[in-house]
């Protein structure tokens, strides 16, 4: 991975990448305009979001939902779309709806 914010004199020639598997170091999360938020108390840990996430950005440990990988989540909203679990008052948004909801990144 080239040095972050390298100048034109420092960056690798022609954008060559010298380390295999280094794409994880590129934070595609910076592209996000919508951000998924999760209500842990009402999550059923069904893992549908983990199955559908195209960027492997649902972090799971011991079969339980743990966190979003906000460094790589592009905010596509698929997790929120497929989430089957309902809440009356969401922990983050205060709104009735699904356990995963989308908010504006800037909020």
């Amino acid at each position: 991975m080239p040095k972050q914010k390298a100048t034109w004199k420092e960056t690798n020639i022609a954008g060559l990448v010298f380390e295999p598997g280094s794409s994880a170091e590129y934070h595609t999360g910076t592209w996000r305009t919508l951000r998924p938020v999760h209500d842990m108390e009402h999550c059923t840990h069904c893992m549908l979001c983990w199955v559908y996430c195209p960027d492997s950005s649902i972090i799971v440990e011991d079969g339980r939902w743990m966190a979003f990988d906000y460094d790589h989540c592009k905010g596509c909203g698929i997790c929120a779309s497929v989430c089957p679990a309902k809440v009356k008052v969401h922990e983050h948004t205060g709104k009735e709806g699904k356990v995963i909801q989308m908010v504006l990144e800037q909020d």
């Binding site: 080239p2 914010k5 390298a6 034109w8 960056t11 020639i13 022609a14």
Partner: peptide, 10 residues
């Protein structure tokens, strides 16, 4: 956009 410009400068 965060690196292409630098590569053109090279």
């Amino acid at each position: 956009y965060d690196y292409y410009f630098e590569h053109k400068r090279q």
